[in-house]
Design a protein around this nucleic acid. Structure first.
Lengths: 116, 116
DNA sequence: ACGGGATATTGACATTCGTCGATATAGGCG
DNA sequence: CGCCTATATCGACGAATGTCAATATCCCGT
């Protein structure tokens, strides 16, 4: 399970200036790397993309397995990674699990990479 | 060596709209994931950060080993990953190798993550 | 041409990651 | 209550990753 202290991406972003402005401390580098690692998988990018394109930026897990063409456990795993990293939130509604984009989470990472 | 067709990050960025705008194709997801993977390591982030903070956004490899506290081969490896991904360029000047930030490369990735 | 310093490459190793099948859990419905 | 459907967890496996010591390569000065 590897339960390491989870650092919501919004906190990571609040921490510091864009990495091209001043040199990153080892701690900040580690936090940002963890956020980027969560994004650095084609399946997870597609999941985020599909969720973001859905009504209310929210999608049912049941609608996410088929488009990415992987097994149900694998998709569930990827969704967990994204939730743990703070990019998605999970809500149980009846039998179904809904995943919603966390507003500003992607932007927070984006802001750290920009050179302006 | 794993010589897979290298896709400069600038090309990746030119490809498509922010991933929150419309669903990412498998190919585009793969390209972006590859770029993000290159960034998703604390040491590599620090290397980029140090280079970016240097005069002319360029630094000698000889000045990069000590700050990150890893062996010379390991640093050389990380620099190669960043060059292959299109974030740095390498120039040999005499005995020394200089690494320079590719203008716009980070911004290209940044633009894909933004939700605007 | 030779020696030395800077960098890259190789080979090995432990760790992490992505994936699956099998199974567990949990909630709605008859 | 008992089944069915949706989702999560477990255990296993191969592939990829980060690291180092040892070695090779390349370039300069003598």
């Amino acid at each position: 399970m590897s339960t390491i202290t989870l650092i919501p991406v919004t906190d990571v972003a609040a921490c510091c200036a864009p990495l091209t402005r001043e040199t990153l401390s080892p701690e900040n580098a580690d936090g940002l790397a963890r956020s980027l690692k969560a994004l650095a998988d084609p399946t997870r990018l597609r999941l985020i993309s599909i969720v973001a394109a859905s009504e209310g930026k929210e999608a049912c897990a049941c609608d996410l397995t088929e488009p990415v063409g992987l097994s149900q456990p694998t998709v569930s795993h990827h969704l967990k990674v994204l939730v743990d990293a703070g990019f998605l939130t999970r809500t149980q509604r009846g039998t179904w699990a809904y995943f919603k984009l966390v507003p500003g989470a992607l932007d927070a990472v984006s802001r750290l990479l920009i050179s302006a």
